[in-house]
Design a protein around this nucleic acid. Sequence first.
DNA 1: CTGTGTGCAAATGTTTTGCATTCGC
DNA 2: GCGAATGCAAAACATTTGCACACAG
Lengths: 140, 140
Amino acid sequence: MDWPQALRDRGLRATPQRVTILAELAGRDDHPTAEDLYRALRDRHPTLALSTVYSTLETLEAAGLAHRLSLGEGRDRYDANVRAHAHLVCLGCRRVVDVALAPVAPPPEAERLGYAYAFTSVVHHGLCPACRRAGPTRPD
Amino acid sequence: MDWPQALRDRGLRATPQRVTILAELAGRDDHPTAEDLYRALRDRHPTLALSTVYSTLETLEAAGLAHRLSLGEGRDRYDANVRAHAHLVCLGCRRVVDVALAPVAPPPEAERLGYAYAFTSVVHHGLCPACRRAGPTRPD
DNA sequence: CTGTGTGCAAATGTTTTGCATTCGC
DNA sequence: GCGAATGCAAAACATTTGCACACAG
């Protein structure tokens, strides 16, 4: 994938920081946080600032090149998978995997209340195999 | 509703703080944050501490008397409506309303990957009537 | 009485902001 | 060269924690 081009196509400047962050995010499927990305890129990019990671992620999200996930963990995760999909979160280890998104209808209230419906986000929860084994009794 | 009893039924001490917080939360449908509740109760309950609101909300959630909503606003909201329902969030003003929850199936990946499926949360997004009028062009 | 809950203050962790410097275009 | 992006440090927030005192059961 030509990340510099993808950036310019949306009218964004293709700075090395943006390209690196976008490539790193797109290259992993573990839904990293800003800090995760920062730590992963520090070696290759010693002058990279954490605040640049934050502002870049905000920019990427606004440009539709990344999605932000707020799962109630105190920090946000990011996802370069921009195709429609749902998430499956482990209640034990908090791992997040992308899963298929079944078609969702807007709620009847949307029309009744006069909302312009936009989209729906779906987050499934469960216990992953490893956590099932680790602690069979764990509601969390 | 007998809040002290509801608390004791779950094995919790019915302190005045808990009763007041639970009653306030149950009496509103705007999905307040911890700070919102704290500010609303301050007058009636001058010695109430914000940290008590936080710990009480955590306790109520663990007891199944409240739900926590993480909508990516930087702070969490709470909801005493414990019946299964979805949420509809306005992209403009961030207002949150409860809406009907259509039946959701666990994603096929849950079984395929060996997850013990638990539950799914559904958040719809749209523009409320007021925000549609205010700014017709506003992706957010 | 006893142990749990509260209040207060300080700490923590994430995200944001201000500003001078750098660099893509 | 110009204006947008970056890096760095400091600030702003939400939330958590430690601990002495208060109170529900």
